[in-house]
Design a binder for these strands. Structure first.
Length: 385
DNA sequence: CAGCAGGGGGCGA
DNA sequence: CGCCCCCTGCTGC
């Protein structure tokens, strides 16, 4: 194999795409290989996975194809997407990967299950705590007659990503009914993909910003990815502001007939499990949109813009304003005493009483005489007023 | 006890 | 609809 830079291969040699077969040794029905050919021999070969309309490039397959196939042609959208992916990228990183692939050629086989019990294949990825395969197993272990198995592909020491698939097998079947990519291991950090929403065909929607990293660049970004990226951009630009509801777009949740549910991450997995059959995880519903927004802000983005400033040693921050208020009261015994007759607010009740005696004594007397006097309002929480 | 998160009333644009 | 505020229950330490 010639060591060419990517832009050289792209310019010099034609791109050929062939769909990977669906035999037991293949990856899956939605995978295909993009190769660039010179004199009948491929010079670069990339594996692509089509996932719910997104094409993820899994770089560096060393396996050479016997003959240039012709099932994909220029003009085909997948061809175009793959062709764009072969545009020049980080040449240094690519050459490192290229040389690594030459020294350590790898191709993974699809291993059909030997039994219906969950039995993950041996894995050789870098140490991850907790083990992502075990975490995936715990999410899908109760599927009734459908057995879930996690097959690991494209494990590369150099790089960067390992994708976990949940294949579903019927009783006695050796081959999966279908395969959902549901997890992604990026640099040892496990990310999950939401599986599907109601009405979707089996597939997945990438949910993590990791999926849009430069190392795993989906060739066609999903609307959900765009929405998530937009929120991350907002958080970066406004770290001290809560995520506006207008940023939490319909790609991230559904709200129908007075009930809403989250389409992100674990929630979407639970939703999909609920739809598919026996519950492995109960989906959560929300009756009010603002609580759903709070959930997405806190659980899926962990954005905590409300920081406690009452003590230099207190580093607590909160997703919600009222949680910060509660914290201030409970931890710091901090509260505010607003005057019911003007806008002044005091941190000590004595100061409030003093203020009322000095500034509002006339009002107090008239209220007392008219019989409408009541105690000044005091607020327990709500220190922000 | 403290943090977290959902329920619900209310207000204003 | 978006937001604020308060209430409440759960959970982990």
């Amino acid at each position: 194999m010639m060591a060419l830079e990517r832009h050289q291969t792209r310019e010099a040699f034609p791109l050929v795409l062939n769909q990977f077969d669906s035999q037991a040794s293949s990856y899956n029905d939605n995978s295909f290989v993009a190769s660039q050919w010179s004199s009948g021999q491929p010079v670069t070969t990339d594996l692509f996975l089509e996932m719910n309309g997104c094409y993820n490039a899994m770089e560096g397959m060393e396996e050479l194809l016997p003959t240039p196939p012709s099932s994909w042609h220029p003009g085909n959208p997948i061809y175009e997407a793959a062709s764009r992916s072969l545009a020049p990228v980080d040449e240094v990183a690519y050459m490192r990967l290229f040389s690594h692939q030459q020294q350590h050629p790898q191709i993974k086989e699809h291993l059909p299950p030997e039994s219906l019990s969950f039995d993950p294949p041996p894995r050789a990825i870098r140490a991850v705590t907790p083990d992502p395969t075990a975490m995936l197993a715990s999410r899908f272990q109760d599927r009734g007659i459908i057995t879930t198995r996690f097959d690991q592909y494209n494990e590369m020491d150099f790089a960067i990503h390992t994708i976990s698939f949940a294949g579903r097998y019927d009783q006695g079947d050796s081959f999966p009914l279908h395969i959902d990519p549901i997890g992604l291991n990026v640099n040892g950090q496990l990310e999950f993909f939401g599986a599907m929403k109601e009405g979707d065909e089996p597939g997945f929607k990438p949910l993590s910003p990791a999926a849009s990293s430069s190392q795993i660049q989906p060739l066609a970004r999903s609307p959900q990815q765009d929405a998530i990226q937009k929120i991350y951009d907002y958080i970066e630009a406004h770290p001290n502001d809560p995520i506006p509801a207008s940023y939490i777009s319909r790609e991230l949740f559904e709200f129908r007939n007075g009930l809403g549910w989250c389409l992100m991450g674990d929630c979407a997995v639970g939703r999909a499990a609920h739809k598919d059959g026996p519950l492995s995880k109960t989906p959560r519903f929300w009756g009010r949109l603002n609580h759903l927004y709070d959930h997405i802000r806190g659980v899926h983005f962990n954005h905590r813009p409300f920081q406690c400033s009452l003590s230099p040693t207190c580093q607590m921050s909160f997703v919600r304003k009222d949680d910060l208020a509660c914290h201030k009261f409970r931890r710091h015994r901090y509260q505010r005493f607003p005057c019911g007759m003007c806008d002044n607010v005091y941190t000590l009740q004595d100061n409030l009483k003093l203020h009322i005696q000095c500034k509002h004594v006339d009002t107090l007397i008239s209220m007392h005489l008219s019989g409408v006097l009541s105690a000044p309002a005091t607020r327990v929480h709500n220190p922000e007023g």
